[in-house]
C-alpha cells in the first residue's frame, strides 16, 4: 500500500510541476516571444526574450532577437549594455548575433569597438566582412575611404548587396556638391540667385520680390522727402535685413543641400547594410 501511495504522489508531483511550468517553460516562452516579435510588439517582446535568455543563456538566436527588439524600440544604449552583460566572448559569434551587436555599436557611435568586433569574427565570409567595413565607413560619413576600400576590394563573384552598395558609394562620389560660398556670393550680387543655384527657385523668387519691393519703397520715400524720409529709412532697413538674411540663408541652404544629399545616400546604404546580414 505504501508503495502505491508513493507512486500516486510521484504522478501527482510530475503532473503539477509540468502544468505549473507549462506556460512559462523555456519552449513556450520562446514561442510566445517570437510571436510578439513577429507581430511587431517589440517592447513586450524584449521583456519576454529577457526571460527566455535567463532560462537559457546559451540561446544565441534569442539573445540576437532581444538585442534587435531593443534596437527597434530605439533603446540602443540599453541594447548595447545588455549585449555586454550577456555575451562574454565576442569572437566567432553566429552571424545574426554579430550583426545585432555591430548595429548597436554603430548606433551608439562606437565605431572603433565595431571595427574591433568585425576583426574578431571568423564566421563571416569575405563579402560580409567587406560589407561590414563599408558600413562602418559610411556611418562615419567617410565616403572617400569607403570608395577607395570598395575599389580595392572588388570581388570576382559579388553578392548583389555588395554590388549595389558599391554603386551607391560611386554615385555619391560623382554627385556635384553645391558651394556655400558661391551661393552667398551669387545672392550678394543678385538677391535670390544663390537660392536658385541651390535648387530653391521659389525661395529665390520670393526673396527677390521682397528685397526689390522694399528697396523700391525706400527709394520712393527718399526721392520724395529726401534723407529725412521715415518711409525711406523703415523700408530701407527692412529691405537690407532681407538682403543680408538672403545671403546668410543661401550659404546655409547650400550646406543643408549637401547634407541632405549625403543623408539620402547614407539612408540608402544603411538599408542595404541592415538587410545584408
Amino acid at each position: 500500500m505504501i508503495r502505491w501511495i508513493k507512486f500516486f504522489c510521484l504522478i501527482l508531483l510530475l503532473d503539477v510541476s509540468g502544468s505549473s511550468q507549462g506556460l512559462f517553460s523555456y519552449e513556450n516562452s520562446l514561442q510566445f516571444a517570437d510571436y510578439l516579435f513577429e507581430s511587431g510588439q517589440f517592447s513586450l517582446a524584449s521583456e519576454e526574450y529577457e526571460r527566455v535568455v535567463f532560462l537559457n543563456p546559451h540561446d544565441s538566436a534569442s539573445i540576437g532577437r532581444l538585442l534587435e527588439s531593443y534596437r527597434m524600440q530605439n533603446r540602443s544604449e540599453l541594447g548595447l549594455k545588455r549585449a555586454g552583460q550577456l555575451i562574454g566572448d565576442r569572437d566567432d559569434l553566429p552571424v545574426k548575433l554579430f550583426s545585432q551587436i555591430y548595429y548597436l555599436e554603430m548606433e551608439n557611435k562606437r565605431f572603433e569597438e565595431a571595427e574591433q568586433l568585425v576583426k574578431l569574427q571568423s564566421n563571416l565570409d569575405d563579402t560580409q566582412k567587406n560589407l561590414a567595413h563599408l558600413g562602418l565607413a559610411i556611418s562615419q560619413n567617410k565616403w572617400n575611404d569607403a570608395r577607395s576600400y570598395y575599389l580595392n576590394h572588388q570581388m570576382a563573384e559579388e553578392s548583389p548587396y555588395y554590388t549595389s552598395l558599391g554603386n551607391i558609394i560611386q554615385e555619391y562620389s560623382s554627385k556635384r556638391k553645391k558651394s556655400p560660398l558661391l551661393a552667398a556670393t551669387l545672392s550678394t550680387i543678385i538677391p535670390g540667385a544663390g537660392k536658385a543655384y541651390t535648387g530653391r527657385w521659389a525661395d529665390g523668387a520670393i526673396a527677390l520680390v521682397f528685397i526689390g519691393s522694399n528697396a523700391w519703397q525706400s527709394y520712393r520715400g527718399f526721392e520724395k522727402d529726401g534723407i529725412k524720409s521715415v518711409r525711406g529709412w523703415v523700408f530701407g532697413a527692412i529691405g537690407f535685413g532681407f538682403w543680408v538674411g538672403n545671403i546668410y540663408g543661401s550659404y546655409q541652404t547650400a550646406r543643408q543641400h549637401n547634407q541632405s544629399v549625403m543623408q539620402k545616400y547614407h539612408d540608402k546604404a544603411s538599408d542595404i547594410i541592415y538587410y545584408a546580414f
Partner: peptide, 11 residues
C-alpha cells in the same frame, strides 16, 4: 538675419 531668411522661405 536668420529670421529674415525664414520669412522669405515661408510661402
Amino acid at each position: 538675419i536668420n529670421a529674415f531668411d525664414r520669412l522669405t522661405r515661408c510661402h
